[in-house]
Structure formats: structure tokens, C-alpha cells
Design a binder for these strands. Structure first.
Lengths: 210, 210
DNA sequence: GGTAGAATGGACTGCACGGTCCAGACGAAG
DNA sequence: CTTCGTCTGGACCGTGCAGTCCATTCTACC
């Protein structure tokens, strides 16, 4: 039974724990999940082994899970404020730019992807984190489309959820290819094509009844 | 300096080597890259350790690379003959079905994805395999679109390569999400949306000149 | 049918890395 | 100022697993 938090945490403890998670995240991005060791994390965060196991009694797996949650939150945060306010085609474009920039800068390390390749399908925890991230992401996209519907820039009978799912898939694939090849062409293509398709769907809608 | 093949290979040797690669591929799919050990492979293929190192002097990494190549070839092969003959919208649909079926059946194990998460960005070999796979895949899609152009079912000025890139990204993302969540909705959505978008692009083209 | 080289078996090694333990410093609360 | 619990340091352990070595058997070729 995985309980949420270890024992009591004082202010100092909280800080240390946070330091460990952030440091571990950095190490994982650099070294990759397979290669990263607890000692790497210790060196990076200047924490002793007992600290690691003090804050993450479940050992490496629990730490990885914490990092995964941290990274997952980061993903959506990095898209704000654009992702939360997709109420014009310009806003969509800004969001697109933010996504491309974020992942181009991140380069070829996949904090999340590799994480649950390690902890992976086995544990329910890891999967839950990814599922939740995808859900929130897709919901945000769908919400943006609904705003455009409300503004009369998308047909009201558009299957928003499917469209959002397809767009999200395009992003994921683009990122995935970026990670393996180092080229962001596919990410750009997927985003541009997805948005263009959307815009064209709404074309000439202004003249439809109120 | 990584040479292509070990020393001389007799017929028997070739068979054994092949057996090892296939067995290793199976083990990797089941256990995941991180968890799979050489001893697992030994058990599965009934090969001794010296055999492993006889055929793959580079050790585990070289074996993983061989498996990666094997799996990469498999991916495209599994889409044939549909992928090679995308000369009608029905053919595109058949291909779509084949892709969905293949990945739904594969379930939640990612032979390739996890492979180069392990060997990964570090080695040039792994990246090359993935890059090559993506290139061939995308080329096949682009070729299919060109056939549709030739048949007058797609505008001749369509930017085929970008469209193929976007579609490929959608597939990759759909698969990637399928792997993490177990749901194939996104893969279906990406494929259906991508193809529908394509078809709509070619709509009403029959009445164009000639 | 003999020999050179490939193919196989399996014991052995080394060590990296996750995890445990205890001893001691620090901080909060009464 | 005492006390209790959190926090930290670092030595220590066990082992799982990649990789090595040599001895033996099989295969091809003359």
C-alpha cells in the first residue's frame, strides 16, 4: 500500500526532499533512466544515502515515481499561460510556438517517456501519472476548441474530443521522433497540420446563422 | 570499431545467431529492456553464455542493437502489402486497419521505443536504426500520396512530405499513448483524422482540368 | 581421416549498485 | 535544559549480472 508521504516533514525536510527530486530529475534527464544511479543523485544533490531512503522509503522506484510526477506537472506548466487560453487562432499559434520551443530546447532527453519505460507498465503508479497527464492535456485542447466553437469559429457539431485526441497524438509522436532523431520537423508538421486542419474546418463559418 | 559481423558464420552458426536474436526480441518484449538479462535470453534460446559473446562480441549492447534492427524491419513488414500499395482510398483504409490491428495486438510493449531508451542517444548505431525506419516509413506514406496525386485524387501541389511527416507523427504518438495507457483511441483518432483530412483535401478534384 | 577453425558448455570473476544499519547532530516543544 | 523525533553521515552488506576463460565437441575442407 503506497502511502502518499513518508513520515512528518519539517520545513527543512521538505526543502531537502524537494532538492532531491529536482536533482534526481536533472540527473535522469542527463544520464537517462537506465544509466542513472542513486549515487549520481547523491553526488548531484549532496545528499547521503540515508537521506534518500529517509524521504523515499520505497527506494529507487518511489523516487522515480516522484520525479515522474514532478516532470509531468512541469510539462503542462511550461505551456502556460497559452494552453489555458486558446480563445483565438493567434492564441493557438502562440501555444504552438511555446510547445515547439519547449521541446526543441529540451533536446533529446525524454524525462517522462523513459521514466515509465523503467518503472513502466508493471507499476500502477507510473501509468496513472501518464494517463492523468494525457487526460489533462487533451482536456485543455478540447476546452480551447470549445472556446472557438463558442466564438463561432468552429462548427458547433465538431467532434471536439476526437480532434483533441488526434492533435495530442500528433504532438506526442512529434516529440517522440524529436527525441530519437533530434529533428523537430515532425513536431512542427503535426502541430501546423493539426491547427490548419482545424482552421479550415471553421472556414466561412461567420456567415452561418448566429 | 564496430565491425558488421563477427567472424565466419557456418550455416549452423547463422541459425543459432538468428535463434538468439529472435529469442532475445521476445524476452525484451516481455520483460522490458531494463529488466531483461542475458540469462533470460540464455534460458529462452537455450544458448550458453559463450555463445552469446561468440556471436555478439560487443556484449549486451551489440545484441540489443541487432534486436533493434530486427524489430525495425518487422514494423514495416507487418504493414505490407498495404503500405506498399496505397493507390486508392480503400487501400489507405486497409492500411489503417492493419496498423491499428498490429499495435492493438502488440499491446503495451514497445520493442523499439524502449530499446533505444537503453542503448539510446549515446550510441550512434541505435539512432541510425530509428532514423532509417522513420525515413522509410514516411517515404512509403509520401509515395502513397503521390499515387493519389497521379490518379487525380489529391491536388498536385500538395506538400506531400510535410503531410506524410504529420501523419507519421500522429501514428507514433498514437502508438506511444497506446503503450502508456493501453488505449488505442488516440492511434485511431490520429489515423482517421489524418486520412479524412487528406481525402477532404482532394474533394471535388475530379472536375479539375483533364 | 586428419586438422584447423567454428560452435558449445559451464565454471569463475569482479564489481557496481540498491539497500540496511547504527551512531550522532540538529531542531522543536514543554 | 531536557527530551523526543526528525535529519544526516557514512560504513557495510548481498547479490545480480555482464563479461572472461578454458576445455570440449562439432563441421568443413583437403
Amino acid at each position: 500500500m503506497p502511502n502518499g508521504t513518508t513520515p512528518k516533514l519539517t520545513a527543512k525536510g521538505k526543502a531537502t526532499r524537494g532538492r532531491i527530486v529536482e536533482g534526481a530529475a536533472a540527473v535522469l534527464r542527463e544520464r537517462g533512466v537506465g544509466a542513472a544511479t542513486l549515487e549520481d543523485v547523491m553526488a548531484r544533490t549532496r545528499a547521503s544515502k540515508s537521506q534518500l531512503f529517509h524521504y523515499f522509503p520505497g527506494g529507487k522506484d518511489e523516487l522515480l515515481l516522484a520525479v515522474a510526477q514532478f516532470e509531468a506537472d512541469q510539462v503542462l506548466e511550461d505551456q502556460q499561460p497559452y494552453l489555458g487560453r486558446l480563445d483565438s487562432w493567434e492564441a493557438w499559434q502562440h501555444w504552438r510556438d511555446a510547445v515547439v520551443a519547449r521541446y526543441e530546447q529540451q533536446g533529446d532527453q525524454c524525462p517522462l517517456g523513459s521514466l515509465f519505460h523503467q518503472v513502466g507498465r508493471a507499476t500502477p503508479g507510473a501509468r496513472a501519472i501518464v494517463v492523468e497527464l494525457m487526460r489533462r492535456w487533451q482536456d485543455a485542447l478540447a476546452a480551447g476548441m470549445r472556446e472557438q466553437q463558442a466564438a463561432g469559429r468552429l462548427p458547433s457539431d465538431l467532434d471536439v474530443d476526437t480532434r483533441a485526441a488526434a492533435l495530442l497524438a500528433g504532438i506526442q509522436g512529434g516529440v517522440s521522433i524529436l527525441l530519437s532523431t533530434g529533428e523537430s520537423d515532425h513536431l512542427r508538421a503535426a502541430l501546423d497540420q493539426g491547427i490548419a486542419d482545424l482552421r479550415r474546418t471553421g472556414e466561412g463559418l461567420a456567415l452561418s446563422p448566429r
